[in-house]
Amino acid sequence: MTDFRFDLRRGALITAALALLCSVFLVLPASAEAEPFDDCPPATFCLYSGADGTGERRDFTDRQNAESYDATWDGKALSAKNNTAMWACVYGDPAYGGHLETVDLDAEDAYAAGAVSGHKLVPTRALCFTGYERCPDNRVCTFAERNGRGAMTVHLPATDPATRNYGNSYGTGPAPKSAWNRTAKDVCFYPQPTYTGTWADPADTTGVKKFGAYVVLRGDSVTVPAPFAGTFRSHELVTTTGDCQ
């Protein structure tokens, strides 16, 4: 005769084992979907052509700062991940010009279409607001924007036949708004392309008081104040400021 009590016990054990096995499968984690920006490599600043770290990715290290991008990427970045140990400075115009945004270490950012045309990586956030460091040694550099930002002109001094001084004339091009004198001489800036001219003192209602040359001493950088800002048309290098025209 069959012992039904034994079969019942065995059936109960099998049922319990199946229940335990099912519970194991139920608690297994589902495969996690990739989070936005997860593909940005370490020590890299990543730009994306889509929002939230999607689309095509372009990578930069701290040795690959870009004052401007080629035509395929100029104004095309819609998001970014700063996976470096530095601040990322993102600019709306080439040459560190235009609108500026700063991206903290290990942070993400989003942009409107056409808003990003260049960037640099710097150890402190304050350095995002200047661009003077681009000027080579032993040169006078002028910049289209304040604080050394925007398009830079590197001046290679040449002897002017009229003044016999080392100088450069800008003619009718855009007048600079900031400058760095990295030479061993002082620089005299003028409102005329002929190394001459004066500026009226805006505080003098009589119109009599005039300013002569605007001087930037050797080694100094400056954002040009009123009434001189945006008016420089020439400059010359001099041994002493008394040699200005």
Rank of each mutant, 00 (worst) to 15 (best):
T206M: 02
V215L: 05
T194A: 14
P191A: 14
S234F: 05
P191V: 12
T241C: 03
T240G: 01
F232T: 12
Q245H: 15
T196F: 03
W199S: 01
Y190H: 11
G219Q: 11
F189W: 15
D204M: 07
V216M: 01
D204A: 03
D201N: 15
W199K: 03
V224S: 01
D220A: 14
G197Y: 01
A226T: 15
V238A: 04
T240V: 07
Q192K: 13
G230P: 03
L217F: 14
A203G: 06
Y195A: 08
T239S: 15
D204K: 09
Q245N: 15
E236P: 03
G207N: 03
V224A: 01
T223M: 05
C188N: 07
D204G: 05
A226V: 12
K210P: 03
K210V: 12
G230Y: 02
R218H: 10
T241D: 09
G242W: 08
T239F: 04
R233M: 10
S221H: 12
V224Y: 02
R218V: 02
Q192F: 10
G207Y: 03
F228G: 06
E236H: 07
P191D: 13
F211D: 04
T196I: 09
Y190N: 11
T198Q: 14
L217C: 06
P193L: 11
V216L: 12
L237I: 08
V216Q: 02
T205K: 12
T206G: 12
F211L: 01
R233Y: 11
F232N: 09
Y214T: 02
G212T: 13
T239D: 10
V216R: 06
P202C: 08
Q245L: 14
F232R: 03
Y190K: 10
H235Q: 03
P191R: 08
G207C: 05
S234G: 08
G197C: 05
V216F: 04
F232C: 07
S234R: 04
P193N: 05
